[in-house]
Design a protein around this nucleic acid. Structure first.
Lengths: 225, 225
DNA sequence: AAATCAAGTAACCAATTGTTTACATTTATA
DNA sequence: TATAAATGTAAACAATTGGTTACTTGATTT
């Protein structure tokens, strides 16, 4: 039963779908598909993800996915690209240039940890992409550029730290970057196996706080003179 | 064409399969299935893996997989359990008790790195298991026990380091363990996306050597007084 | 208001996939 | 040596899956 802009089921209060502006909204349809796909790919991997399930969660017809995204593979590509651009964008908003080097680095470690904690899909998507030899990301100039800026940012923090007499000389920014990511990523990525083999709940809030402090210490000791 | 214990194709030299002891060899069949399954699950994940492909690579009839392993899911469980037991067994062989604390820790970091490098399947399998919330590992008492011994080993190295006056006090062995694994695991797990976004071949032998040194430095600075 | 195109739906299809059935052969044992 | 259990094979099955076809409805333009 359709009334104006609303699709309503027989019992009048059970609204299936609300579309305030128009009955047709391609932008919202695309957004819904992308959001649903992100969750589906993150929870089940590229092979495990089901196009039907994405369509159901996004509340769009499966045909629309192929209309806007060509194929499951291409949909995954759009998802992983956006995921990378999102995290790099969030990092830029930290405005680390205004902090002294030590504070900037600590802030970056804290941010990275919190981002992984708040966006567990990111980790899963990156894993999937690596399982598939990063073939979806290969052509993405945009992602490469965003990352170039990020490495530059870390390099400038290191330079500042040396100037301030706080940091050691000649620290490789790429390896530092990788380590900052690694110590958060690994802990959260392997939280399920980790909680079993270490016989403690790694996601317990106390354990999480302790881990963050441990990570900050790791990085600061690594760079300090 | 079958002659005795050998299965031979028409052109006499093209031996398809050699079975020295008997025409039937359940142990070898199981071993072949496990080895093929390990590679298949590692390269394609649990969902992406194909039972047909495992059977083909193992050169056994698909029916045998179900005969010995019940289901694809259970086969994965056997694979992941064995993978964990294998790495813990290899660690024990290092005989770290006979080294001074600092050397023992460096040896452990080197070993972990090399093991991941030589056994990339391990990383992939652990990822898969975590994607599935570690449900296959949950019941494995054996794996938990093996890991308990491992944490004990690291704890004893830490104690020795404190006694020797080399290490700081009160370092958490679980978080140290996690960090030792993390700095190797992350780099190698994400080598494909990493090589793209950092615009350099992370698997280049020079880059690998540099990374290992970086990791040793990270851990030693972390624990030292 | 007619025509045109974009947006959306339902049903279907060919291929694939994990799993099973029915049957054959080898090995161990009484 | 007869018999049962273990090991192996070929073929098929039911369910699922990514992708498509044919069609309808709504929005925009002239």
């Amino acid at each position: 039963m359709k009334i104006g802009l609303l699709t309503v089921s027989k019992s009048c209060c059970d609204i299936e779908r609300v579309n305030l502006s128009r009955t047709r909204d391609p932008e919202s349809t695309k957004r819904n598909i992308l959001a649903a796909a992100k969750m589906e790919f993150a929870t089940k991997g590229l092979s495990g993800a089901r196009v039907d399930d994405i369509a159901n969660v996004a509340k769009v017809n499966k045909r629309m996915i192929y209309h806007y995204f060509e194929s499951k593979e291409n949909l995954f590509k759009q998802v992983i690209e956006k995921a990378y651009l999102d995290i790099r964008e969030a990092e830029l908003k930290l405005n680390l240039e205004h902090l002294d080097a030590k504070s900037a680095l600590e802030t970056l470690v804290r941010f990275t940890w919190k981002y992984y904690l708040d966006n567990p899909e990111f980790i899963r998507l990156v894993n999937s992409e690596n399982l598939h030899h990063a073939r979806h990301l290969k052509a993405s100039k945009e992602v490469v550029q965003a990352n170039r800026n990020y490495v530059g940012l870390v390099q400038s923090i290191l330079d500042r730290g040396v100037q301030e007499g706080e940091f050691r000389d000649q620290i490789d920014p790429v390896n530092l970057n990788i380590t900052i990511a690694a110590i958060g990523y690994y802990y959260l990525n392997n939280r399920f196996t980790g909680s079993i083999i270490f016989e403690q709940d790694l996601m317990d809030s106390e354990a999480l706080d302790k881990r963050l402090e441990f990570n900050i210490e790791t990085i600061l000791k690594l760079v300090s003179r």
